[in-house]
């Protein structure tokens, strides 16, 4: 039963992250996602301190606020201070993350978070965090419920906002011309990324969440050209990653989240090598096997 809950948690994280990550990598904002996943840390700590609990709502609000702040700081350094984009991202997230770590050290007694957990989470504890109603009914692990709620929210955003997200992703100028606000969709996406990061934080940590955000969508991107297919493929790959990662972790006796990141990497490697359209080996094989027909024949 524990294995089921752990795999389910992994699959939920992978699905939520993958759906958002698809839009991140198409917008060439993969590293902004990375930055947000680190920068929400002070938001989580402050939410802990203010609400003195592990309630979900304050955390989500804290996270969304920090996510927007991160995006805003990056934009400020890039546009107003005219710093190059990589440095703007690097300075912003390291600064916020450092503040988060300092806050954790400062209030070590009051904040139930340790540094290991921040970096790679502990998905193996998920089945222990049970949700029991007041009448004593057992409803299964709390994180699974929270993650399902967030996934529902993300699905809602993507289904209702499909047109807006798609147009602002592929052709921001056209979007502006037909009156779709790029700023709105940008900040909505960033808030969704921060909320997802925070919810995934406990189970997979700040860095491995990046693996789920970036690697399955990147793999899907190598396999298809259509946004629709890419989203579906990403979800499928995310679930495969969660299942195979779990068994890899059991085999090696190591961190489940780490193993899931590794197995997502393996799928990416396979796609790089064998993708039917762009795979390195596929192309090489094709070049050798099939002679390219000449365009018409010249007279000799």
């Amino acid at each position: 039963m524990n294995a089921f809950w752990i795999i389910l948690t992994g699959a939920l994280v992978a699905t939520s992250c993958g759906l958002l990550g698809t839009f991140l990598i198409l917008r060439k904002m993969a590293m902004v996602g990375d930055a947000i996943s680190h920068a929400v840390l002070p938001g989580i700590v402050i939410a802990y301190l203010l609400s003195e609990s592990r309630d979900v709502l304050p955390m989500l609000i804290g996270a969304a606020a920090l996510g927007v702040l991160t995006t805003f700081m990056i934009e400020f350094l890039y546009q107003k201070a005219r710093l190059q984009i990589d440095a703007s991202i690097g300075i912003t997230f390291t600064w916020l993350f450092a503040i988060g770590i300092i806050l954790i050290s400062l209030y070590a007694g009051q904040v139930d978070l340790d540094q290991d957990c921040v970096l790679y989470g502990e998905i193996a504890y998920v089945p222990l965090d049970l949700w029991i109603t007041e009448s004593g009914r057992l409803l299964g692990p709390r994180p699974v419920w929270i993650l399902s709620g967030v996934l529902a929210l993300i699905l809602l955003i993507i289904i209702l906002g499909y047109r807006g997200l798609k147009i602002t992703t592929f052709d921001p100028e056209y979007a502006a011309a037909v009156g779709i606000s790029t700023v709105f969709w940008h900040y909505l996406l960033m808030s969704a990324v921060s909320v997802t990061t925070v919810v995934a934080f406990e189970s997979v940590g700040a860095i491995l969440v990046v693996a789920f955000l970036i690697v399955p969508p990147a793999t899907a991107y190598l396999l298809t050209e259509k946004l629709h297919n890419m989203l579906l493929l990403t979800v499928g790959l995310g679930i495969l990653t969660a299942v195979s990662g779990y068994y890899l972790a059991v085999w090696i006796d190591g961190s489940v989240a780490g193993a899931m990141a590794v197995s997502s990497g393996v799928f990416l490697l396979l796609a790089v090598l064998f993708s039917p359209s762009t795979g390195v080996l596929t192309q090489r094989f094709r070049q050798q096997a099939i002679p390219v027909p000449a365009q018409g024949y010249k007279e000799r």
Binding site: A30, M31, G33, D34, L119, Y120, I207, L208, V210, A211, L213, I214, V215, A218, L248, A249, I252, G254, S255, A257, G258, A259, M260, A261, V262, S264, G265, L268
Partner: peptide, 15 residues
Amino acid sequence: GAVLSVFFGAGILLL
């Protein structure tokens, strides 16, 4: 991003 997270994941797994 992909290299960062996959390599780090491998490191965490080994650690």
